[in-house]
Amino acid sequence: MAQPPQLPDTPSLVADLVQQVSQLIKHHQIQDPLVIGIHTGGAWLAETLAKTLNAPLGKLDISFYRDDFTQQGLNPKVNPSSLPFDINNRHIILVDDVLMTGRTIRAALNELFDYGRPASIKLATLCAINGRQLPIQADACALELQVTANQYLQLEGPEPLQLTIIERTIDESAS
């Protein structure tokens, strides 16, 4: 069995992401961004980002927007989305922990557009791995990584945040 690649320590990845997002805002001259994290890992990261950027914080649960609910069934315990602001004509930083297929982001974009029409959306993810199924890329990303078919990444938290590689048993299917 191949040794899993060593990951940089999580706090420095988070710091890197915060740094990249700050630059992104500066570069695009974004005024008064909203930070919106996707449950659950993305929401933890969004909290840190919102604090640093001094921006309003929102959370999304995309369970009701998934395109695979007919295969996977519905997760009964859905955390409610909370967007305590009007998103119309606002600039949004959408935050998730790991970008893989792109389907979660697609669902999140759909849900956001049910709430209104934002001026722009930038995507920030802690980590991006191979396996994209949709034309979606992160605007800010602290770590790009190649993994094998039976590895995936998971952010554990909230205190402390810890990104780990999980080896899955052969039978589990990709989600």
Binding site: F64, Y65, L74, P76, V78, P80, D114, Y115
Partner: peptide
């Protein structure tokens, strides 16, 4: 039955949101 109740509980929250519609 418990799953029905938990799922419905989530929908109660959706019903209280500004956007009450989901695309399931």
């Amino acid at each position: 039955l418990e799953r029905i109740l938990d799922t419905a509980n989530s929908f109660v929250v959706v019903g209280n949101q500004e956007v009450k519609k989901v695309p399931l």
